[in-house]
């Protein structure tokens, strides 16, 4: 039951992009097409889950026992950066086809604040490891969902006649706002 609440809250109520504004850069930058959005979502799901597990272990078995939690920011970002690099190398060796699908998106993820954000949120919310994993997966699904819906809207926008000044990013942001408005309907669900 508790897991169900975490999942619904992370996907719909506190959607990471539309309600918490994490990962807006790829949301605006990569979401031109539905297919690339799905690829990006897959890469984020993968890295976010791994990063949450590793940072949770580091926080609870290294930083807290040695009382150096003020180093959290530095440690986490280094872990995530090296993790991304490692995933890239391993994927290249083990599964070239998966690497082909996710490869281009991996380097972009280091600067995706959603990954670091979820790692820190998991610590702040005092989740245990299992809850952290569920939270990370659900958040990544929420991210993918928002990206795919938004990409669908943008594909349609390309065929519309938009006033000159609003063309491109401005109209995309305004439509993202309307999408966020729709997601606000989920408020109070859990």
């Amino acid at each position: 039951m508790e897991y169900a609440i975490i999942i619904i809250a992370a996907i719909f109520v506190n959607n990471i992009v539309l309600a918490q504004f994490l990962g807006v850069c790829p949301f605006v930058g990569v979401s031109g097409k539905i297919s690339t959005s799905v690829g990006m979502g897959g890469a984020v799901l993968f890295v976010m889950t791994l990063a949450t597990v590793v940072t949770w272990l580091i926080q609870n078995y290294i930083l807290v026992p040695f009382e150096i939690t003020f180093l959290q920011t530095i440690t986490f970002i280094l872990v995530i950066a090296s993790l991304v690099q490692m995933v890239e190398i391993i994927l290249k060796k083990l599964s070239p086809s998966l690497y082909g699908a996710l490869g281009v998106f991996l380097p972009l993820i280091t600067t995706n604040c959603a990954v670091l954000g979820v790692a820190i949120l998991t610590i702040q919310k005092d989740f245990n490891l299992m809850e952290g994993v569920v939270f990370a997966i659900a958040t990544a699904i929420g991210f993918t969902l928002a990206m795919v819906i938004f990409a669908g809207i943008r594909e349609h926008l390309d065929n519309m006649e938009v006033p000159k000044g609003m063309a491109g990013v401005p109209i995309a942001l305004v439509s993202a706002g309307i999408l966020a408005l729709a997601f606000m309907g989920f408020t109070g669900l859990v």
Binding site: V169, L173, G177, I178, L181, M184
Partner: peptide, 11 residues
């Protein structure tokens, strides 16, 4: 609230 941020920035 959240939606206003996107809309205001767009304009």
């Amino acid at each position: 609230l959240a939606p206003g941020a996107f809309i205001a920035l767009g304009y």
